[in-house]
Design a protein around this nucleic acid. Structure first.
Length: 665
RNA sequence: GCCGCUUUAGCUCAGCUGGUAGAGCAACCGCCUUGUAAGCGGUAGGUCGUUGGUUCGAAUCCGACAAGCGGCACCA
């Protein structure tokens, strides 16, 4: 006996539809325009296939391309399926595994039959994908019994799919999607009604890569194909343009163009800072020192190399030895080539972190509760033997310098110390041009040290401190990340958003009760007994190397004046102003400006172009007129207009502008 | 560490199926004294990442190693 279903629409109206009807039928009933535009449905809030029948009364919102987030998600998911179908058509014997949508497209992981895919395969696969789209194959949902599906996967030689299906609960109904009648994949859906709903000009396969089955290094390596996918060609082109723009900001490229630093094979993973790059480094470091001094930190410097026994005691040896640089504590025998290590050599290691050394400083002498909080800061140069595949320009290096500090405090000082840190960090980030940042709290992981009580109060202390900043709302990007904390403590993470919307985790603060225990740090409290201090590990920039890399990309090399490697160039038009130009340079130098002179026998056009390309913020052009009137023609980077100023005015102005943010009046 | 790709002049790159290398920019020299994003001419510069092999002959084909790039895994 057939019943009518009540389908409520967003405008409040209710349509009665016969049993077995679908959202597509509703769209058709409303009008042909909508029927054409509708690509999926939200049924009782859930995104569904437009062709999937209602199972009862429901609320319905039809999804069109205007619902961009949903539409993109559907399109990308479909592209992934079309990719998989194309690959299996072209490369029979390839197994399919897993293929989700991503932030800008999709990927699919395959177990190739004989060889992994290469870039050269991509155009061929793209062509096959376009053929499948052009064929406008219906995407049909079907529900299978779990065991029947496992049997089918096994029969087809799809061992990864079979393994996956076998992990779903017994008796569960599993949805699969057919593309036409030839190809199917196990998938939760939803999908568009047919492949022809995709724009064949709106996707591009971008790269191939290896990827481990289920993301685990111990599993077989699969061959992943990435693509970017959009609703139309215009969106795709805009995305490709954004990628090009991002590539122009690449700190490795700009670093070379501006002669800031280099890396080379013989010291891979360690930075050669050139004079111009190190100027940035020094300016940043000097700025941080002033901020830390003002915030009550005491700077220290600790050994680069310590005895292995020390690292054993701190726990690093056991846990991180494979990423530490270890050296024998022996004088090498210079009669032979290379260092000779005897069997009973004692071992030392380059420090991968500064914290144990700071505890050792804390332990010198007897500390009283009156000494707390004690904030020990270090521009700590650390070495970590990173996996070679992880190295990346300045962003991931083997030798780096942390803006590190450890705060030793009592439990009742904890919230205040975290709050102070948040305040300091807020000022620093804003000074450096990052007003937009988010705080996240990484909570206790499964495997951890310490009591539940410790975790309770340390997590709560962090929540309380962040609450005081007012940034503990989703609009600020606040999030709690279950399971992501360090094994000894929860941590706050600070994520910057850069000029083109990318995020970078830089700052962090974490509580630690384990290390003071291991290294036996204590203070004498008011009750006359010894107590363990709490140790806060914290960094604002993270590492100088990486942070400067982020600054380069954020500013695309066009640094604020106080960080610019060369702040001004004085360029002459013809040689009769050489003497005056030298005078201008001397005055600027005396005012503390990093200035260079350009007296070369070149056209002014050439000089202006070269220094503009070199991202010099100020070009001061002087010719006969300026020399006679003791003025300069100031041209700012990126501007056509010039300002004509007296020399004194120009010097005073640049001197003021070049002050670091904390010294500006 | 794993998968794929790459490595030629200071930089960016060309060099087809093997016959010992080429352009633009930069550098240097000369001419031009020039008013706001590339003036003109010339010279010099490379044991083609390293190392084995195939071959009469290797930048080119094959192997190993290294570094770099894109991902994966890792990131105390």
């Amino acid at each position: 006996m057939s019943q009518l279903l009540k389908i409520s629409l967003p405008d409040g109206s209710v349509r009665e539809m016969p049993e077995g009807s679908t959202p597509a039928d509703v769209a058709a009933a409303i009008g042909p325009g909508l029927a054409k535009a509708a690509i999926a449905a939200r049924v009782d809030g859930e995104l569904r296939d437009i062709t999937r029948p209602f199972t009862g009364d429901a609320t319905l919102a039809l999804v069109t391309a205007k619902d961009e987030a949903d539409a993109l998600e559907l399109a990308r998911h479909d592209f992934a399926h079309v990719l998989a179908e194309a690959v299996q058509t072209l490369f029979p014997g390839t197994q399919i595994t897993f293929g989700p949508s991503t932030d800008d497209g999709f990927y699919y992981d395959f177990a190739p039959k004989d060889r992994p895919f290469t870039d050269e395969d991509l155009p061929v696969i793209e062509a096959e994908m376009r053929r499948i789209i052009a064929a406008n194959k219906p995407l049909r949902r079907e529900v299978w019994d779990r065991d029947a599906l496992i049997a089918r996967w096994r029969e087809q030689g799809e061992s990864f799919k079979a393994e996956w299906a076998a992990e779903l609960p017994q008796g569960e109904e599993i949805s699969v999607y057919w593309s036409g009648d030839e190809w199917m994949d196990m998938c939760r859906g939803p999908h568009l009604a047919s492949t022809g709903r995709l724009d064949p000009a709106a996707f591009k396969l971008t790269r191939v890569s290896g990827a481990y089955w289920r993301g685990d290094q111990r599993n077989p390596q699969l061959s992943r194909i990435y693509g970017t996918g959009w609703l139309n060609k215009k969106q795709l082109d805009a995305h490709l343009l954004r990628l090009e723009e991002a590539a122009k900001r690449d700190h490795r490229k700009i670093g070379q163009e501006m002669d800031l630093f280099h890396l080379q094979q013989e010291a891979h993973g360690s930075v050669f800072w050139h004079p111009r790059g190190f100027v940035i480094y020094r300016a940043l470091e000097a700025y941080m020192r002033r901020r830390l001094d003002a915030a009550g930190y005491l700077e220290v410097k600790t050994p680069q190399v310590m005895d292995a026994r020390q690292w054993e005691q701190s726990g690093h040896w056991g846990k991180y030895r494979e990423n530490m640089f270890v050296i024998p504590d022996e004088v090498p025998n210079t009669e032979d080539e290379g260092p000779v290590v005897s069997n009973d050599a004692a071992w030392m290691a380059l420090k991968p972190m500064n914290c144990p050394a700071h505890v050792l400083i804390f332990r010198q002498g007897i500390k009283s509760y009156r000494d707390l909080p004690l904030r020990l800061a270090e521009m700590g140069c650390c070495h970590r033997n990173e996996p070679h595949g992880a190295l990346h320009g300045l962003m991931r290096v083997r030798q780096f310098t942390q803006d590190d500090a450890h705060i030793f405090c009592r439990e009742d000082q904890l919230v205040d110390e975290i709050s102070r840190f948040c305040d300091l960090l807020d000022v620093v980030y804003k000074d450096l041009g990052f007003g937009d940042y988010a705080i996240k709290l990484a909570l206790r992981p499964e495997k951890r040290f310490g009591s539940d009580e410790m975790w309770d109060w340390s997590e709560q202390s962090m929540r309380d401190a962040v609450a005081a900043t007012g940034r503990n709302t989703p609009e600020w990007g606040w999030e709690e990340l279950p399971g992501e904390g360090a094994f000894y403590a929860p941590k706050l993470e600070f994520h910057l958003t850069d000029a083109i919307g990318r995020t970078w985790q830089v700052g962090t603060i974490q509580t630690d009760t384990v290390l003071p225990e291991r290294l036996d740090a204590s203070y004498v409290a008011e009750d006359g007994n010894r107590h363990r201090p709490i140790m806060l590990h914290r960094a604002i920039l993270g590492s100088y190397e990486r942070f400067i890399g982020i600054l380069i990309e954020h500013y695309a090399g066009k640094f604020p004046l106080w960080l610019a490697p060369v702040q001004a160039v004085v360029a002459t038009i013809v040689s009769d102003a050489d003497d005056y130009a030298r005078e201008v340079v001397a005055e600027l130098q005396a005012a503390g400006i990093r200035v260079e002179e350009d007296l070369r026998n070149e056209k002014i056009n050439y000089k202006v172009r070269e220094h503009s390309v070199g991202r010099v913020p100020n070009i001061l052009v002087v010719g006969k007129q300026e020399a006679e009137k003791r003025t300069v023609a100031l041209r700012r980077l990126g501007e056509q207009q010039q300002q004509f100023l007296s020399l004194d005015e120009a010097v005073a102005m640049l001197r003021q502008e070049a002050l670091p943010p904390d010294l500006k009046s």
